[in-house]
Design a protein around this nucleic acid. Structure first.
Lengths: 347, 347
DNA sequence: GATATTTACGCAACCGATTGCGAAAAAGTG
DNA sequence: CACTTTTTCGCAATCGGTTGCGTAAATATC
C-alpha cells in the first residue's frame, strides 16, 4: 500500500513545515513546544502512521524502556506467576520485559546477565540460580548504576533492594502450627542453603523447635533440590528409619517435594495426618489436589513480581529511590488444610 | 575505575590503526577481512572491554535479534513450558525473547502486538487469546514480511506457519480409549470453539463416537473456560442429571477442569472410574497427583516452544523458508492412568 | 615485467531520534 | 513605543555501528 520506507519525524516535520527537533519534542509532550503545535504534531503523526524508532531513540537517549528478568527457570507455578506480575506492571508503565532463565546454572546466569547488560536494560530483576555463590557478574550493573532488584532468592547488597517474604517467620509459624497439633518429631525437607530462602526457612524451623523445647536432630533434616524425585527419596528415607525414629510430621520447603513424599508414604500404607502430618510451602495447585489437601504457605508470586517491577520502575522514573530501601517484605499467609490437622480428628 | 564513556569500535580502530569499518566487519567475522587482522580486532576488543551497542547496530542493520512471544497468560504449566523451550532455543541462537501476555483479552493482545511491532522484533511467536476473532492486528507484520509463527492456539494464514499437535487425532484416540473401556455415555468438557484446539478436540470426540455408533448428545457437551470453577460446575451439572442420563465417562479438554470435576464428584460419593471414568488433556502436574491419576494427553510444551522458535530463527537465518510450510505437527502421546481403566478392574 | 585478477581495507554516507544552545517571535513592563 | 522577559522553535552535532563503492596492495597469468 504505502511506501516501504518508514515514516520518520522528518516526514512529519516536512509535512508541518517545522523542524525535526520540534517534532521530537512535540511527540513527547515537551512543554517547550506550544500546545497548538503539539496537537498538530500528534495529529500529523497519526495521519501519517508514524511509529517511533526505538533504536534511534535508545541510541541517543541511552535508555531502552526495557527491564530484564533473570530467573532460575520460568516453568514453575510460582515463577510464572511472578513473571506474570512483572509483565503486568511493566506493561502498565510502558516498559518491556526481556526474560531469560539460568536453568539453575551459574554459568548461564552469568551469560544471561552479560546479555542483558549488553542489551542495555534499564533495570534488572533477578532471582539467583541454585548454586550461585557470589554476584561478581552483576558488577557491571552496579558500576553503571543500573538498578538491580532481587526477588525471592535474594542476595543482600547495599546498592540494591530485594523483594520477598519473611521466610524465617513463615517457617517458624508453620512449624509451630505442627507442634500445636501435637507433633514432636518434625522433619524438615530443605533446599540449598546458599539460597537465603532455604536458609531462613531452616532457621525458622529450628527456632520454633527450640522455643518449644524440642530437640533439633540432624536425622530429621534433609537437603535436596526439592524436586518430585527428592520428595520420593525423602519418603524412602523416612520408611527406612526404625519405626521409633520416624518423624510424626514433615515440613517441606516446597509443595512439590511434600506432595511426592506424601504420595510415596501413602502407598506404603502410612496415614496422613494420623501417622505423619504434612506442611509445604508455596501453595502450588497440586497442594489443593493431593488428598488430604496440603497445609502450606501462600504468598502471591504475582504480587512479588508486581512489587519488584513497580519499585524498579518508580526508581527509574525518580519517584522513589531504590538505594535507600533495603528490603520489601510481602505478606505470606499460612493455609491450614487437612494434611496437618491432627487435633480435630481426635475430638 | 575506567572512563564513563563506553568503548566503541572507533576506540578499537584507533588502537589498531585501522578504520572503524574494518573493525565492524572484523568483529562479525566477515571474510572480507584477513584472518590476522580479524584476530587482532577480537583481541583488542577483549582487552579494551568492548561491548557492542545493539541500538546502533539495530538502527542501521534493521534487525534486533529479538523475538516477540505473545501468549494468553504465562502462568500455566503448559505455557511456561512453552516459553522455557522458546527461551532456550532463542538463547542458543543468540536471540532474545520479549514476552507479553494478553490475559485472554483481544484488546490487550492488539496493544501488545503493536508494541512488539514497534520494538521491531525480528519475528513473532503467538498463541491467540480466548476471544480473538480475526488477526487484523497482525497485518503490520505480514506487510513488513516479519515472520509470524502461531503455536497451540493457531490461526491458519498462508503467510505463516503454525506449530502444534493433531488435536483431532488426540481427541479421537482418547475418546476411543474410553469407548474401548466400555463407556457408552461420554461427556465432553470443551473450550471456546473460536480456538482451533477446542474445535478440533470436539470434532475428534464426535468422530470417535460416530465411528463407534454412539449417539452424539448435546446434553453431554459443555463449553466453558475450563477453569477450576468450570470443572466444579460441570460436576454439579452431572449430579443434577437424572441418574439414567448421567455420563459414564468425561473427556475434558484440559486437566484442570477434569481434576476439579473429579474432586467434586468424588466428594459427592461417585467412584472413579467405576461410576464415571475420566480423561483430560495436557498432562499437567496435577494429573499425577489426583487420585486416581488422570488419563491424559501428553505433549511437550517445551518442544512446541523449542520447535516454534527454532523454526522462526531458521527462517530468519535463511536456512529454511517459513512461507512454504503450512504447519508443523508434533507428537502427542496418550498417557493411560487409573482414572479411565475400567476394564482391568473387572477382570 | 606488463597486465589481469583477487584480496584487504578505507571513505563517507547513512539509520532516526535527541538535545544544548542560540535566536526569533510573542508577551509583558514602564 | 522602547526595552526586558518569556515562549517557542530551529540548527547542527551527536549516539555507534553498518555497508555500498572505490582503491591500493597482493597475487596470479602469460
Amino acid at each position: 500500500m504505502s511506501e516501504d520506507r518508514e515514516v520518520t519525524i522528518y516526514d512529519i516535520a516536512k509535512y508541518l513545515n517545522v523542524s525535526a527537533a520540534t517534532v521530537s519534542r512535540g511527540l513527547k509532550n515537551n512543554p517547550m513546544i506550544s500546545k497548538t503545535t503539539r496537537k498538530k504534531i500528534t495529529e500529523a503523526a497519526k495521519t501519517l502512521g508514524y511509529q517511533s524508532n526505538t533504536f534511534a531513540s535508545s541510541l541517543r537517549s541511552r535508555h531502552t524502556h526495557t527491564l530484564g528478568a533473570l530467573v532460575p527457570r520460568l516453568n514453575s507455578h510460582f515463577m510464572s506467576s511472578v513473571l506474570a506480575g512483572m509483565e503486568n506492571a511493566a506493561n502498565r508503565h510502558g516498559y518491556n520485559l526481556i526474560i531469560a532463565q539460568s536453568l539453575e546454572d551459574v554459568e548461564k546466569e552469568k551469560r544471561n546477565a552479560a546479555t542483558m547488560f549488553n542489551k542495555r536494560v534499564d533495570g534488572l530483576l533477578i532471582s539467583l540460580s541454585y548454586n550461585t555463590q557470589d554476584i561478581h557478574h552483576l558488577e557491571p550493573f552496579f558500576k553503571r548504576k543500573i538498578p538491580v532488584v532481587f526477588f525471592d532468592r535474594i542476595y543482600l547488597h547495599e546498592e540494591s533492594t530485594s523483594v520477598g517474604i519473611n521466610n524465617f517467620e513463615a517457617a517458624y509459624n508453620i512449624t509451630r502450627h505442627l507442634i500445636e497439633q501435637g507433633c514432636q518429631r518434625i522433619m524438615h525437607l530443605g533446599g540449598n542453603l546458599l539460597r537465603n530462602v532455604y536458609q531462613e526457612r531452616l532457621n525458622g524451623y529450628r527456632q520454633a523447635l527450640h522455643d518449644h523445647h524440642l530437640p533439633v536432630s540432624e536425622k530429621l533434616y534433609l537437603t535436596s533440590t526439592l524436586s518430585e524425585q527428592a520428595g520420593a527419596e525423602a519418603a524412602r528415607y523416612i520408611l527406612d528409619l526404625p519405626p521409633g525414629e520416624r518423624p510424626d510430621a514433615v515440613f517441606s520447603a516446597n509443595d512439590t517435594a511434600a506432595v511426592y513424599c506424601m504420595l510415596a508414604l501413602k502407598s506404603a500404607g502410612l496415614r496422613i495426618p494420623e501417622d505423619i502430618a504434612f506442611a509445604g510451602f508455596n501453595n502450588d495447585p497440586i497442594s489443593r489436589v493431593i488428598e488430604p489437601n496440603l497445609t502450606t504457605m501462600d504468598y502471591s508470586g504475582d504480587s512479588i513480581g508486581n512489587t519488584a517491577a513497580t519499585y524498579l520502575i518508580n526508581h527509574l522514573k525518580g519517584i522513589s529511590n531504590l538505594y535507600t530501601t533495603d528490603a520489601i517484605t510481602l505478606r505470606a499467609d499460612m493455609v491450614i488444610r487437612a494434611s496437618s490437622l491432627k487435633k480435630k480428628l481426635r475430638k
